[in-house]
Amino acid sequence: MSWGRRLVRVASPLVALGVWQLLTSLDVDLWLRFEQFPTVVEVASALADRIGTETYWQDLGHSLRRIALGFLLAAVLGVAAGTAVARSRWAADVLGPLVEVVRPVPAIALVPVAILLLPTNEQGIVFITCAAAFFPVLVSTRHAVRALDPAWEEAVLTLGGGRFRVLFSVVLPGALPGVFGGLSVGIGVAWICVISAEMISGEYGVGYRTWQDYTVVDYPGVFVGMATIGVLGRLTSTAVEALGRRVTAWLPGAGEGGAAGPARPSGSAPAPAPRTDTAAPEGPTGPGPLTGPVPDAPAASAARSSVAPPVPDKEPVT
């Protein structure tokens, strides 16, 4: 990368931060209102304070554990189901229609399902995260398995291999580039959903904390939450991409800094990267309830509004 490009890459976020600081410190009010918007310095000092607290790391740990569990589960289930649907007519007939009906339902709209089915909130959050990542993985795996070169399978068959040998020596390794396309999309969707689910029904977790800060009108805290989500999302998706490049190093053209593989953008898959703006409250600027059962629906983000009914079993720690 040339020095010019490096400079642009470093300068771009710095300039953005500078503009933010300027707009907020001058309390600009040009239709967009920046009076109550925290300044960069306020956010940075809030971040510095938070990083020193145990709560911050506890929240981080909770969110990471939930996403790790949900995502890994989704990866295993998605690859298994995608392979089954692609390889077996029976599986395609049984699972295909179900998948196509459930897939368009936003994972976060499954909150009521999670509450009805699962004994604890914790499991509900993992379930929603898993449901979110499951479909992109399934769809990518299905495509990748169907696109395999039939000669690979025939070669293994004529060398004496059976079904399992074909599955583990041809189908799964051969589909990895596509699978990782799905995993890359999946990890992004998983973040969006783990944070949303935490906001709705979590105890601890970055999403929960961000929403808590919003309800007590701690706007710098909200931005600390969003920044944390952004960094975590970036780190995990980088990890997935790096792993993908590693296991698909055999692809022609690998090692030239491309994506993990021929990732087909799957039909209904949402944005590949977690967007911090999903956590931005859009509701009235007044404070939500400080304590009590549930922050109610009126101050709902886009994600929340799809699950309008209040969550009955939430027990805020405060």
Binding site: D149, A151, W152, E154, A155, V156, T158, L159, S169, V170, P173, G174, L176, T248, W250, L251
Partner: peptide, 12 residues
């Protein structure tokens, strides 16, 4: 054993 026209080696 089968020897394919276009190599059917497993590229990974």
């Amino acid at each position: 054993a089968f020897v394919f026209q276009h190599d059917a080696l497993l590229p990974w």
